[in-house]
Write a protein that binds this DNA or RNA. Sequence first.
DNA 1: CCGTGTGAATAAATTCACAGCA
DNA 2: TGCTGTGAATTTATTCACACGG
Lengths: 213, 213
Amino acid sequence: MSSPSLPGTQHVSDATLGRLSLYLRHLTEWQAAGVATVSSTRLAAAAGTTPATLRKDLNPLGSHGRPGVGYDVASLVPVLESTLGLTTAWRVAIIGAGHLGQALAGYAGFTQRGFPVVALLDSSRALIGTHVGELMVQDATDLERVVAAEDITMAVLTVPGPAAQRLVDRLALAGVRSILSFAPVAVQAPDGVHVRRVDLASELQLLAHRAGS
Amino acid sequence: MSSPSLPGTQHVSDATLGRLSLYLRHLTEWQAAGVATVSSTRLAAAAGTTPATLRKDLNPLGSHGRPGVGYDVASLVPVLESTLGLTTAWRVAIIGAGHLGQALAGYAGFTQRGFPVVALLDSSRALIGTHVGELMVQDATDLERVVAAEDITMAVLTVPGPAAQRLVDRLALAGVRSILSFAPVAVQAPDGVHVRRVDLASELQLLAHRAGS
DNA sequence: CCGTGTGAATAAATTCACAGCA
DNA sequence: TGCTGTGAATTTATTCACACGG
């Protein structure tokens, strides 16, 4: 499945990407506050990691730090944005307008960080046609039409486990290649379609284990 | 009931725990369906991992599989529940009654999997006193009193980044040792207090990167 | 002096391979 | 024959240590 790294596109691991996202968040904050340079020690502390890890993370993106000074904030921000794929205009659809789906539709964090939610779908008669914030819940039967009409490039699945696989199949067929699923089941997707799973109850169980030991 | 009499709790990694949670989910489903035994191949497929990894995951929990047959479902379920800390009665408070907090308060998945939400707090005058499902939003100023009165053992933080650290400090001081934070900032906690961070926008950025490469 | 960039060392997680039991 | 349990090998991630530039 993994294609050899194309010239210019160094491989960046998932663990690293998660941290890059945090780095970017702090850098934009500091950029707005007028901070010009930042040392690896300071940025690492803000992101909850170590200076060594941070430098390793930033290394494959090119040299944007000056010895004795630190990293140039203004120079680093666009590089991170580009690496994280924020140069493309993403358009997100949320499938499943239950509690979680409605909340994510109204969650300002998504839009703020470059992922505007432009459609909300559900299969329940009771929900279709109702309004959640500025969005109207659309019929999940029309998934393919909505994806095309709204130019959806990313989907968030907040549906019960059993419904997830079928929706992933339909989304993939409709051309959506990035899917974030909250369903607590493993799903399969064709090559080129990326599914990432977040299991909230699982996170609580992990905490429960640690507290018990 | 029969807690594993092995005195030393073997170390189980975070990566493994995340998978154990998924295994448990499928096992309870199959147990209800009357399935008696399951092979590592089948369970691994359902959880989206490999048989070898699954056997390694289950190994430190003791031998519950029989060669040539597979794992005994009824025997494995309680072991996983015990390992994941589901034998204690957890009581969850959600701090922050914004979109995300309200959704999680009404999210059935938490209660279903052993983590009932029994309190919802916020600092906004406009929200205090309003009802979300069966819960009334309480004043975050009273955090310490609510933790004691409701016997809170776990907290979910759905507050803006800048507010997170202060609340972690107060929760730790009030005796809460397990915290799940949705704030996109690193927080520090004293020894014995576990904080796990989930950054939803970060998950989308990870997908965005993969799609761009 | 600081603080970056990076090779070397260490630690962790995953995969392989196979002996042995039902 | 099928499938577990587990040591060994491999891949991946993190930490250490230090040469070199401002």
